[in-house]
Each structure stands twice: as C-alpha cells, then as structure tokens.
Amino acid sequence: MSQTNEQDSPSRKDLRINFFRPRPGFMRKEVTIIWITLTAWAVMTFGMPIHLALTHSDPTRTLAEAPYIFGIPAYFWFSGQFLILWFIFLCFIFNVLIDWLSSSYRRRR
C-alpha cells in the first residue's frame, strides 16, 4: 500500500478482517456493495417461496385466485423465468459498482 492513502488505511498492526466489521476505506465500501447485492438476491429468491408458503396452501383456490401473466400464474413465471433475469441484472449492477469503486481507488493512489 502506498504512502498517499495513509489516512485511509488502518494502522499496519491491525490485521483484523471481518465481514461484519470491514476495515475503513476500500473494504468497507466493497462490503456495502456486497450487502446490497446479497439482500436483493436473498429477498427475491427466498422471499418468494416463503410468501407462497404462507399464502398458498390450497391448489384449486391458489390457481383460481393468483394473478396471471403470459397465461400462467405470476409466481410460476417469476420463479421459472424472471429470477434468472434478476440474477443477471444483479451481477451486472454489482460489476458496475465494483468497477466504479476500484477505478476511484486506483485514481487516488
């Protein structure tokens, strides 16, 4: 690590790495981006089956009352097709943010 960003980097004695207590500077920002992406990933992937489990217990009622999209129940389309798009989108956003973060740090050095 170079001298110029000394105030940004913690003391050289402190070697602690912990996801829940990220080091100030680059790592803290990186972990923030990771948290955002992971939350968006977990809520959509596991929130949907949990929601389905809580609200849909009877097949005939479910399929009569559920909203439809493209001719199939919305939740079915959501899990079968939309979530893959969502994953691609998340990876895209993550990459854009990390690119931005690493270029801003490269400039600072």
């Binding site: 992971l38 992937t45 979530l83 893959i84 993550f94």
Partner: peptide, 17 residues
Amino acid sequence: FAYILGWTGGYVLLLVL
C-alpha cells in the same frame, strides 16, 4: 425451479462473495 434457481443464483453468490 429449485434446481434451476439454485444453479443460476449460485453464480451471484460466487461472484459477489
């Protein structure tokens, strides 16, 4: 769909973490 999402969503985990 558990297979399909498991085998695609895992890449998000891999990339991010």
